[in-house]
Amino acid sequence: MNAFRLAGDMTHLLSVVVLLLKIHTIKSCAGISLKTQELYALVFAARYLDLFIHFISLYNTVMKLVFLASSFSIVWYMRRHKIVRRTYDKDHDTFRHHFLVLPCLALALLINERFTFREVMWAFSIYLEAVAILPQLVLLQRTRNIDNLTGQYVFFLGAYRVLYILNWIYRYFTEPHFVHWISWVAGIVQTLLYADFFYYYIMSWKNNVKLELPA
């Protein structure tokens, strides 16, 4: 495992920790899109189907379990926890996320590495992850007062994607047989979605003003 990959996984983990901190400790999910969180839970469920079939490493298994458990518990908190769910900004989180699922499934049936159940589900999870941030970005645009933890959560998620691209470039030169075009193309699309957010996040940090995205 190279340094970019490890750093990418760690920022991904950090984003989850930041979100859980906000939800568990502050008991607030204000500014967080339940739609995006539901899509992530679906992404991990579809991608980690081989969790108990193919053993890669202890690291791999533990991280998969962490992402599965955290994504489903976040959805549970936002839907069921009697304090947290009251802070959910339902009126602004209106992205029709179900309409992302079917096109991703159709694309996975058409473009996959092998036409098997697990490979189609893997491709589906890659496509869905690429667009899963959209409801969150839309909600941020509609949020007048983006708190620091929410901004940091999205920033770490975006950083994770940038680091994964650097990891692929590194692997391309060091492991020439390692080529997953599907995840590379989808990953680049996913990272580009953050470009706008990154711009405003860095500007607000540089100018020391509160983060706000133009509508």
């Binding site: 890669i56 791999n60 893997w122 994964y164 047989h177 390692f178 080529v179 997953h180 995840s183």
Partner: peptide, 10 residues
């Protein structure tokens, strides 16, 4: 092995 394309990423 070469060409194995194991999916070891998260």
């Amino acid at each position: 092995a070469a060409g194995d394309n194991v999916k070891d990423e998260l």
